Computed example of a mutant assay.
Amino acid sequence: MTQAIVVEGLRKKFGPREVLHGLDFAVESGTVFGVIGPNGAGKTTTMRCLLDIIRPSAGSISVLGQDPRQAGTALRRRIGYLPGELHLENRTTGRRVLEHFAAISGPVDPQHVKQLAERLDLDLDRQTRKLSKGNKQKLGLLQAFMHKPELLVLDEPTSGLDPLVQQVFHAMVREAVDDGATVFLSSHVLSEVQQAADAVAILRDGEIVTVSTVEELRTAAVRQLRFNSTGTEPHDVGALLARVPGVANVAVRELKADGHTAGTVEAVATLSGHVQPLVQELAKLNLTDLVLEEPDLEEAVLTLYAGQPPRLGQSTENGQSAGNGRTPGRHTEGAHRA
């Protein structure tokens, strides 16, 4: 499989402050790659480097097989971009905004634009100044998707969208990928990336903590376990759980009823890792109740976020980039300033 994006040793400084610390990652063509991290982690700065809106201080970037610093507008026309902060001209309509972008990105099928607007329930003839935040976000999504780009770069794409429209967005992403496109999206909300992405990079303080699939994150996440069994002594249940890889925080007690032993042992524990070894051991018990909760991916990611102390002098991404970006190219400029 070819790689749509390859980043090696990416560093970015704003003055003396380095905000990206040698990022390395690759995005396979025809996949959805999600970058998740708290605000200020470096997500937007990374995207702007990919699009040559700002120039990296060190490292190399390949986007659709080209160096974005050398490729110019021909490469940008192959990309659909939704910035994290979408600014729209107030004295125009959504339709005129899209006509402007169509003139920049190349031929756009009017019927395709109409279909997307209907799916997103967006009135293109309303003044942009009268649009709600959610409808402005819909307009931003429409301009990113409308020319059927090979690569979609979407910064916090569901911000301001209601749950029903979020589902429409996820359907649009899958359809684009089915047609051969690659999607690179960022979010600070794990559930969004979990639903859309094939691979996930966790970014913290300008560094990639890990790159994995959602399933790998799920496997590594902690599950809460609780069960009741009969006919077994508490110490035997504890010994059984001690043999299961990934089981921790075990607490076992014998339940009592009306002051007399009820003959039931209750056990609670946590599980990180695969379920099968646990199931094999629990099959040896006479279970009367069993609860194994869905892994808490939010907690797993937060644990990765907290793996290192923050760097001194860390600033937010808005603070990093204010007044430091170079003049963007034609397509990304329109999307960024729209």
Rank of each mutant, 00 (worst) to 15 (best):
S159G: 04
G180M: 02
G273N: 10
Q137A: 08
V291A: 11
G231S: 11
L302C: 02
S105G: 02
R126K: 15
L255K: 11
H260C: 07
A103C: 08
N135L: 07
T232S: 05
Q167V: 08
G325Q: 12
V291F: 03
G9P: 01
K138H: 09
G9W: 05
V211S: 09
T270N: 05
R223F: 01
E8W: 08
L88I: 01
L290C: 05
A300C: 07
Q194D: 10
N39F: 08
A306C: 03
L312E: 15
R311W: 09
V209A: 15
V63T: 07
A176S: 14
P310Y: 09
A267E: 02
L88Q: 03
L312A: 13
T261Y: 11
G231V: 07
R69N: 06
H170Q: 13
H331M: 05
V247Q: 03
G246H: 09
S29Y: 06
T2G: 11
L20I: 06
A199L: 10
F14Y: 15
G206R: 03
D155R: 00
A239Y: 09
P149C: 06
T213P: 09
V97Q: 12
D109G: 07
V35N: 07
F33E: 07
T264A: 07
S29T: 14
D179N: 13
A4P: 01
D236C: 02
A74F: 00
D162Y: 08
V108S: 10
A4I: 04
S159A: 13
D198W: 00
H147I: 00
V177I: 08
R96W: 00
V35Y: 13
K256W: 12
G319K: 09
A322F: 12
G238R: 13
E99W: 05
S159M: 03
R330D: 12
T210L: 15
G9A: 11
A102C: 08
I5D: 04
P110Y: 04
R243F: 00
A306R: 15
T270L: 04
G59D: 04
A338S: 12
L120C: 01
S321K: 01
T128Q: 05
G37K: 08
G40I: 03
H170Y: 15
R243Q: 15
E8H: 14
A144F: 08
F25R: 10
I202D: 00
T232M: 03
L122C: 10
N286Q: 14
T93C: 03
L278R: 05
E118Q: 14
V189G: 03
Q143P: 01
V244L: 12
K256M: 12
L203A: 07
G72V: 01
R326D: 01
F145R: 06
V7A: 13
A335Y: 10
D125S: 05
E216Y: 07
G59L: 06
L142I: 13
P310F: 09
G246Q: 09
F184I: 04
K133E: 01
E216Q: 15
R78E: 00
L164A: 12
D125N: 14
R55Y: 06
V209E: 11
S212R: 14
G334A: 11
K284M: 05
A322R: 12
V291T: 12
A197H: 09
A269F: 06
P163D: 03
R226M: 05
L190S: 08
